[in-house]
Computed example of a mutant assay.
Amino acid sequence: MTDRLFTETLRAAVGEDLLATRLSSDVIFADLGAETVRPLLTFEALSDLLTTRPLAPPRLRLHRRGAPVPPARYTETGESSRAARTLIRPDALYRELREGASLVLDAIDRLHPPIGAATDDLMRLVRERAQVNLYLIWGDSHGFDTHWDDHDTFIVQVAGTKSWQVHGPGSRRYPMKVDADHTHTPPEGTLWEGVLRPGQVLHVPRGWWHTVKGTGDVSMHLTFGFTRATGIDWARSLLDRLHEVESFRRDLPRFATPDERRKHHDELVRLLAESAEGHDLDAFLAERDARFPRRQSFALPWAVDDAEPTADTVVEFVPILPPALEHAEDGAGVALTVSGRRYRLPAVAEPVLAELAAERTLTVGELAERSGTPAATTAQVLRALVRHHLVLLRPGRAGT
């Protein structure tokens, strides 16, 4: 199972200080075991993805020794539904890989459910959006030169081996993709060095320089990347709130006297300081969580034909982060906010929602029993939740 890979398996291997002191601040190495990560991706599953999905540059691309391989070397133009599109040529792809190219496939979490489940679990751990890219290489070459990333990463080795050197933070701490200073230079020496094998995980913080090379063997690894909220995100949120302040909506007094412009400036500074003082950090993070996107997914035919689920129907909770449940002031219902939308449901939905938020996937029968809600009421609640895209309903599991 990959849906608890980070919140349970990795956290147990690293320790409870993972989030409080080590995340984004230290190199973290853990050996979870090859069998633990095997369900994430196999070569057979990857071959199926390449066969059935319309993948082409820039989403699927090749690099060799720090430079991109021209797509014309491994693609051709084909036709689908009378429209021209770019296709990967299998023979050309094999040739480039034999010659030391590194294959990169972006956002594989949106293509392969086991990786998607692990990505959702990582997002529940760090409470930030995440994306997973695949890296595949043969031989002792490298796809990229020594570099740093503008996001935090967890590297999960799924097949073969790869050599890593983590050099540490460079001359500019916490560099960003959009930054005023582009002279970020690497430090001397190496903080961590080793060869990753299947089942091993490495965390490299944002802005830390690293060098990655093949070992002569095949290597297939997944890079789980996520970008944490910063003070700049807090400040952007503050700016949005300033639309409610009349003085900030008013035109600047460009043609007034210097004294009038100075008074206007002083008023803006005062109001800005007052707004910043009242822009609580905890409230900002809570609002950010409430707007956290849900992964796109569909539940046909249930959401359309309003069919009643049976006891063995599988229920999957859609929100990635467990939403806070709020009681209505009149005590007549419960409310929750998901992806920026607020939903109000009758009070009987509360124990069902609480159990779903904790367990995420249950059969209808299990959900009714654990929540202490009659089966008929549970089914009624689920019919409402699936219409609002808060749950997915699937056919019953074998053996249930």
Rank of each mutant, 00 (worst) to 15 (best):
Glu193Asn: 12
Glu193Pro: 13
Gly194Pro: 11
Gly194Leu: 12
Val195Phe: 10
Val195Cys: 08
Leu196Tyr: 11
Leu196Ala: 04
Arg197Ser: 12
Arg197Ala: 07
Arg197Phe: 02
Arg197Trp: 01
Arg197Val: 09
Pro198Cys: 09
Gly199Thr: 08
Gly199Tyr: 02
Gln200Ile: 09
Val201Met: 08
Val201Trp: 03
Val201Leu: 03
Val201Pro: 06
Val201Ile: 07
Val201Arg: 04
Leu202Tyr: 04
His203Trp: 11
Arg206Tyr: 02
Arg206Trp: 02
Arg206Met: 07
Arg206Phe: 03
Gly207Trp: 07
Gly207Asp: 00
Gly207Pro: 10
Gly207Asn: 09
Gly207Met: 10
Gly207Gln: 11
Trp208Phe: 10
Trp208Gly: 08
Trp208Cys: 05
Trp209Lys: 08
Trp209Ala: 09
Trp209Met: 09
Trp209Gly: 10
Trp209Gln: 13
Trp209Leu: 07
His210Pro: 15
His210Ser: 04
Val212Lys: 09
Val212Cys: 09
Gly214Ser: 03
Thr215Glu: 15
Thr215Pro: 15
Gly216Trp: 15
Gly216Cys: 13
Asp217Ala: 12
Asp217Lys: 06
Val218Met: 04
Val218Leu: 12
Val218Arg: 14
Val218Ala: 05
Val218Gln: 14
Met220Asn: 03
Met220Asp: 01
His221Asp: 03
His221Tyr: 08
His221Glu: 11
Leu222Tyr: 04
Leu222Trp: 05
Leu222Ile: 07
Leu222Gly: 14
Phe224Asn: 09
Phe224Gln: 03
Gly225Ser: 10
Phe226Val: 01
Phe226Cys: 00
Phe226Ser: 04
Phe226Asn: 02
Thr227Ala: 12
Thr227Asp: 06
Thr227His: 11
Thr227Gln: 03
Arg228Ile: 10
Arg228His: 13
Arg228Trp: 12
Arg228Asp: 14
Ala229Asn: 09
Ala229Lys: 05
Thr230Phe: 02
Thr230Arg: 15
Thr230His: 03
Gly231Arg: 08
Gly231Ser: 02
Ile232Gln: 08
Ile232Pro: 00
Ile232Arg: 09
Ile232Met: 15
Asp233Lys: 02
Asp233Val: 00
Asp233Glu: 13
Asp233Asn: 07
Asp233Pro: 00
Asp233Gln: 04
Asp233Leu: 00
Trp234Asp: 01
Trp234Thr: 12
Ala235Tyr: 00
Arg236Ser: 11
Arg236Asn: 12
Ser237Ala: 14
Leu238Gly: 04
Leu238His: 00
Leu239Tyr: 00
Asp240Leu: 15
Asp240Cys: 05
Asp240Ser: 04
Arg241Ser: 11
Arg241Asp: 13
Leu242Ile: 11
Leu242Pro: 10
His243Arg: 02
His243Ser: 03
His243Phe: 10
His243Asp: 15
Glu244Ser: 15
Val245His: 15
Val245Glu: 12
Val245Cys: 14
Val245Lys: 08
